[in-house]
Amino acid sequence: MKRSILKLAILAIAAVPVWAADDFKLPASIEKLAEHATETVDVTLDQSTLALASAFLSKDDPDEAQVKKLIGKLKGIYVRSFEFDKEGQYSKSDVEALRNQLKSPNWSRIVGVKSLKGENSEIFILKDGDQIAGLVILDVEPKELTIVHIDGAINPEDLSRLGGHMGIPKLGKDRKEPKGDSNPQPKPDKDDEESERY
């Protein structure tokens, strides 16, 4: 009886996929940041939705054809980008919750850049042997937080080659002005001039 229970336990442990430890999921605390953000970009594309989108990409349009090629082996694309009107709208623990998931052995941080303005950008890749099986871009700024998770085989070079297309400036040309403390845009006033009669 004890041996059979032991066997079952071993089987259960063995049945847990090794890759589960490499899963990257957006915690609920991150999703809640949308409540405080002045602008939110929320993109969730699983494999079936990617396949559907791919069917509508044009082979004749060079930009779309490039994207079609890029996403051929992907399982999912997830983007969350939050813009805030002031600093301090998200906590360090929010960001650490993301980084902690990327500490498993198969995730590697390939780039990490910090600026004096408090901007911190990191790129992580998930290795599967010699192949890249996932990519996470973490861009942390005082008033903006962006997380891009690409699940599946992707070549970051191909992704960055989109530069010069799709409104993305080429490196070295059309450089964006450095972000400074811009005047926060006033929230729209409630109109009290006219009674609403719709």
């Binding site: 044009s58 349009d61 930009d63 779309e64 297309h165 799709m166 409104g167």
Partner: peptide, 10 residues
């Protein structure tokens, strides 16, 4: 009608 991605983004 498909549009140029650059212009359509703006």
């Amino acid at each position: 009608v498909l549009e140029r991605v650059h212009d359509s983004f703006l």
